[in-house]
């Protein structure tokens, strides 16, 4: 049911784009107005989310310890999985961002005869997540051929590698098909495994289906319903130079593609897709685990309230504690008889 909601939403979006592209003025809306709005909402929303995270105080080290912490000299520390220095923490974030370390550590529990519980390594999620994200990066970089004029230098070598197989009149790009395969895997994974289906929400299915629709419309536009690329590039370069104009010969499939991308951009900052920014902001990952080396003070403590040691506390309440049979670190000083007498007379005076 929850997957149906997401599916219906994506189909509805495609239908909206198909209808709008035929309506007079609809192409200007889809090709010019919405892209500008979407990029503004995307950037504004992204900054808003990051700033709101940055406003949350994290006074203490709450790192996840995924390996041996810094300890005695003869115990080898796991410097990337439990860093105690800033450089180590940077390394851990980079490892997470570039290679998805935490997904690599993914395990799968299984019950065997006996009954015995066993945990095994499960790398599929890591593999397909990595394939998906890097394909998306290549695709976005490759799209710069449509946004830059003269074309920026890195596009040509990237296109050459991506189109290495030279299949078809319009060469297929590997990244597009890898992206579709990876998104399909990530979607089916949620659908097929009962325990994942149980915890999956429409917000989990929707971005996957949306990305699949974007990739599919792009591939269709390149290989099946071919569109006039020159007209599209004139529009997209026009968008970047704030002089957009739409030629009426752009195919409908282009408007579906660009509308879905706009929806993705608008949806991005307010959804789980913000993990793109959040991965850098996670205190469990970007802080050094140095709680045993450095004293971290809570910054909004009242400066008038002085820190009080246990020794001072015991000094104040020692007699009462002994009277209540509580253990104390330091027993009452056994006073000399004269001094004790003096003390008792002084007490009597006061």
């Amino acid at each position: 049911m929850r997957v149906l909601q997401a599916f219906i939403a994506v189909v509805a979006l495609i239908l909206v784009a198909l209808v709008l592209a035929q309506v007079p003025g609809g192409q200007v809306l889809l090709g010019i107005v919405l892209p500008y709005l979407a990029i503004i909402v995307f950037l504004g929303g992204f900054i808003y989310r990051v700033v709101s995270w940055a406003k949350s105080p994290v006074p203490f080290r709450i790192t996840t310890t995924c390996g041996q912490a810094n300890s005695l000299p003869f115990i080898r520390q796991n410097k990337l999985d439990c860093p105690s220095t800033k450089a180590g923490a940077v390394g851990r974030v980079l490892l997470e961002v570039l290679l998805f370390r935490s997904l690599f550590r993914n395990t799968q529990a299984s019950v065997h005869d006996g009954p015995k519980l066993a945990y095994g390594s499960s790398k599929w999620l890591w593999l397909f997540a990595l394939l998906f994200h890097y394909s998306l990066l290549v695709i976005i970089l490759r799209h710069m051929r449509l946004f830059t004029d003269p074309i920026v230098g890195f596009v040509l070598p990237l296109k050459f590698i991506d189109g290495f197989l030279e299949i078809g009149a319009t060469t297929i790009y590997l990244s597009g098909f890898i992206l579709l395969a990876a998104v399909s895997f990530l979607f089916l994974r949620r659908l097929v495994k009962p325990y994942l289906r149980y915890i999956s929400l429409p917000a989990d299915y929707f971005p996957l289906l949306l990305l699949f629709a974007i990739g599919l419309s792009g591939i269709l536009m390149r290989h099946v319903f071919r569109v006039d690329v020159v007209a599209i590039k004139e529009l997209s370069v026009g968008l970047t130079t704030f002089t957009p104009a739409i030629s009426d010969e752009i195919g409908v499939v282009f408007f579906v593609h660009i509308f879905l991308v706009c929806v993705l951009l608008v949806y991005f900052p307010f959804s789980k897709l913000m993990h793109a920014g959040g991965v850098f902001m996670s205190p469990t990952r970007n802080m050094a685990n140095n709680s045993r080396m450095v004293r971290h003070k809570n910054p909004w403590n009242d400066p008038k309230i002085k820190p009080r040691s246990y020794a001072a506390y015991e000094d104040e309440f020692r007699e009462v504690m002994i009277g209540a049979d509580l253990p104390v670190d330091q027993e009452l000083a056994v006073a000399e008889p004269e001094e004790a007498a003096q003390a008792s007379t002084e007490q009597a005076k006061t």
């Binding site: 995307f42 950037l43 946004f147 830059t148 004029d149 370069v237 970047t240 130079t241």
Partner: peptide
Amino acid sequence: VTFPIWYNAGKAQ
């Protein structure tokens, strides 16, 4: 994100 805008700016199309 806005790379194309400042890349294209001032360049002859």
